[in-house]
Design a protein around this nucleic acid. Structure first.
Lengths: 336, 336
DNA sequence: TTGAAAGCGCTAACAC
DNA sequence: GTGTTAGCGCTTTCAA
């Protein structure tokens, strides 16, 4: 591959002059500039970013770690991180951790060897682990989507308590009086927070929050199915249901319908995240939207700021979710 | 950041010895090896891949270009390419082209500057364009998901004609006699091929393929909606429908149901791709599955082979799709 | 078995 | 305004 030296030889100038033309770092006389540009075009010269990064001690690459690439919400995270990064001329290296802390460690190590500019963690698997990796390097890091307490690593998260509040308020406004919920694992803080906001709001309204109508499990379609099956098997009645993400909600809706229970006519169901298929389901799914775009934009912004050694303030951003009303909770417009 | 030189100084050996220990390229006496290893551990040394790549003239990174990250099928492509790449110790740089040939050109240029090891194109936007870029470099490239005629760039594609055959056969086997289809743009070869296989099969069975029951558009949910609306507005009757991808099928199902037409009872509907939500829809969607995993594995394998200057054979791989039967075409097990 | 030295392609101080 | 030179961190001959 042609190098800067080749271009210089062709144009009859020194390598530094070519460098100056390319980077516009200093004034170069018009005549030589023309000659250099002609030479560059002639040999189709492409600067070697490896050499440049080595010399400058900076790269234009950032790393993104997600637990699972083909998951509708991480999918959106990837999309928006890429968008924000590319807007700033940064390139994205994607790593799938598969929720395995060993793969996570490997990925971080690889990224640090690449001397990338920053790492964004979506849903870190093991806090102490990332912490120890971060200690041995001063590469900018940001954690999104999960509260993370570390004096070096800022986080951009969602106000999950508020998400629970919004969900409960909406179901109450729909006239529901026996409200069920299917949650993610309570080992994960955000599941607990969502549930807390949800429960507090229902109880504040004067209704009780029946523990039997709470099903804890994973953030998956299958868990939505399992939750509804459990409620039905126990013969429990309910007229509203919140799944802590849209996958759960979809599983719940499908299972209710399969059992002859109509959504929203008999049970109003809502989800959370506002992933793409929420608007494509039948019925379309009412949901608590995460501001993914803002969240990702902020994360990349923080990497940028840390790179330039600007200070991060606030150190933990907590974004607000919002309600998106669709068919699955609109009892008045009965679909069936 | 600590360099090889620092480690060498600490261990009291020369840089070359440290290099030899790390890479295992030559025999090093046990005593010095121990000392070097201790030094490496002590300072938490991480080799600089930038320097190494510059020296060795190879990187361990590959690039993947997709037209849209947050699309259920490209999502699967990203997932499986990452999987195959990471199995081979390769890292993945993702670029979103947004179907814009200018962004595509920019992305290719950036990747070539990074001196990445290979580029995988999913659905190239403009053939001649990629071709010209490829001419000026000898970086391994592979095109997937779209037939591409270039003597330097192999492709891994799907037998789209056969997909159409399978879809038609299945709907015929379901007892459908008036079969509609909603296709992607006929400007794209694969839409035409799918339709051709579909049509040939229907006609071979003795039925006619009514041109009024063909709706051409995009590979989107909205096009599924639009297609069914068109058929219904025209007062056309049909008892089977194939959407050329699962998004179209979902849009069609939702629209039929909204109009009181039951799926699969009144109309059997099927899609294509077998994206994740196909198994989560209500009803679950019968579909023609693309072997994404195989396709991606092959693509990465080809990059690997080209890197090692092995020969590629066959130059164009055409994989077979397969039928996945779910509820949306099972008339006998009426869901409603 | 180990070290010295050159060089991958680039940039930036320093000269002129 | 332009050239010379050193060096980013690594590997690899070549010598010892």
């Amino acid at each position: 591959m042609t190098s800067l030296k080749d271009v210089a030889a062709l144009a009859g100038v020194s390598p530094s002059t070519v460098s100056r033309v390319i980077n516009g770092t200093m004034h170069v006389s018009v005549a030589t500039r023309k000659r250099v540009e002609a030479a560059i075009a002639e040999v189709n010269y492409r600067p070697n970013l490896l050499a440049q990064s080595l010399r400058l001690q900076v790269t234009k690459n950032i790393g993104l770690l997600v637990p699972e690439i083909a998951h509708p919400s991480f999918n959106l995270v990837i999309k928006y991180i890429e968008k924000s990064a590319s807007k700033r001329g940064l390139n994205l290296l994607i790593c799938n951790t598969e929720n395995d802390y060993r793969r996570e460690a490997q990925a971080i190590d690889m990224l640090l060897r690449q001397r990338i500019n920053g790492i964004i963690f979506s849903r870190v698997s093991d806090e102490s682990h990332v912490t120890s990796m971060s200690r041995s390097s001063n590469t900018p890091m940001v954690v999104i989507d999960r509260a993370f307490h570390n004096e070096k690593i800022p986080n951009v998260i969602l106000d999950n308590y508020h998400a629970g509040v919004l969900a409960a308020k909406h179901l109450l406004a729909c006239g529901c009086t026996r409200i069920a919920t299917i949650t993610g694992s309570f080992k994960i803080g955000l599941s607990r927070e969502r549930y807390q906001g949800f429960r507090d709001t229902i109880e504040k309204s004067g209704l009780e929050c029946d523990p039997a109508l709470v099903h804890e499990g994973e953030f998956s379609f299958e868990n939505g199915v399992a939750g509804v099956k459990e409620f039905l098997t126990k013969g429990l009645k309910f007229d509203g249901l919140w799944g802590q993400n849209d996958l759960i909600a979809a599983g719940a809706i499908a299972t209710l319908m399969r059992n002859g229970i109509k959504v929203p006519h008999d049970v109003a169901v809502m989800g959370m995240d506002d992933v793409q298929f929420a608007a494509m389901y039948y019925p379309t799914i009412t949901t608590i939207a995460q501001p993914y775009q803002q969240l990702c934009e902020k994360a990349v912004d923080y990497i940028d700021k840390l790179t330039n050694e600007e200070c991060i303030d606030p150190f933990q951003v907590r974004l607000k979710p919002s309600l998106v009303v669709r068919e699955s909770t609109q009892k008045e417009n009965n679909l069936f």
